[in-house]
Amino acid sequence: MNKTKVLTPQERIGKKPDKLFLFRSCTGSIGYPGTESAVREVLIKLGIDVITDPDQTCCSGAVAGYSGYPPEASLAVTARNFAMVEKKYDADTYCFCNGCFVHISHYMHDLQTDPDKMANANAIINQWGYDYKARNNFYHVQELYYLLLDEIRALVVRPLNGLRVGCHYGCAYLLKKYGIVDDHELPTFHEQIITALGGVPVFYKERRSCCGSGAGRGFTHKESVVHPHLVRKLDSAKEEGVQLMTTVCPGCNMALDAEQPVLAAQGYGPYDIPVIDLAQLIGLAIGVDPKILGFTANTVSLQGVLEQVGLGKGA
């Protein structure tokens, strides 16, 4: 019970890394590919060497979440991915998906605290010449944005002109509860980032509530549970005049963005609140080409938002 709950980003990460391994996510690279390239562009603008590797596979967290198989396979997949990073690059790993973050942190913790699990996982991956020693650390990129908040503020060339932005933290990062960069019950560090970009953070009522996706929406838990919940969340955002919602999890992004037409067909809304990743918004503000940010993947158009930051056409 005496574990530290909130760490400053300096305590959590230390100093700014020169290089990092970027852990690609499935939805963030396929369904909303703008997320991956936005994160990459933002990190490059911040002067950090970004490494990705096609030898990295799925974190296997989502599949474990909805298929009901026991955890051994996922432990070995985690060990393989991180043994590969250790062997080739010896760099800390950053992911940009809350789902990857919570599953990998969970499995890493299990591997590091349970010698049996570690031995089993290593016994499988040894045949390919890998040996996981847990030498490097694992973070979410949002922690890095918070660490480099002053640098981001200095880079802003396209201020958001008072755009009303509602933040969605996603459950899975705050779910770590201990040793994260903000209070898990009342986090405000996204709002600080939004303010630094020239936007107006909106504290809507259901700000902290879940997107309803989890892993396995529609399968392990039914839409009949998810939709009323989403309606509640989006209603409260609409009430407060949210013009744009940001996420730090491609899964949440999909759930909040792609479900809006479905809800509209059921007679709710219409909401028309575009949902993008925090990295895409930072990228937009620090002058990354909107084409690279990939807003075309979004279901709800960002035209209004782009006009407000002075990008009328194109994008």
């Binding site: 096609p54 030898d55 997949v77 393989r80 991956i125 084409k291």
Partner: peptide
């Protein structure tokens, strides 16, 4: 992805896929 100027599909090496399946 092509419009954004990145590779058309996120690449995973055949060895990695094979090892993933083997696990």
């Amino acid at each position: 992805r092509s419009d954004m100027g990145v590779e058309p599909f996120p690449k995973v090496t055949p060895e990695a896929i094979e090892q993933f399946k083997a696990i």
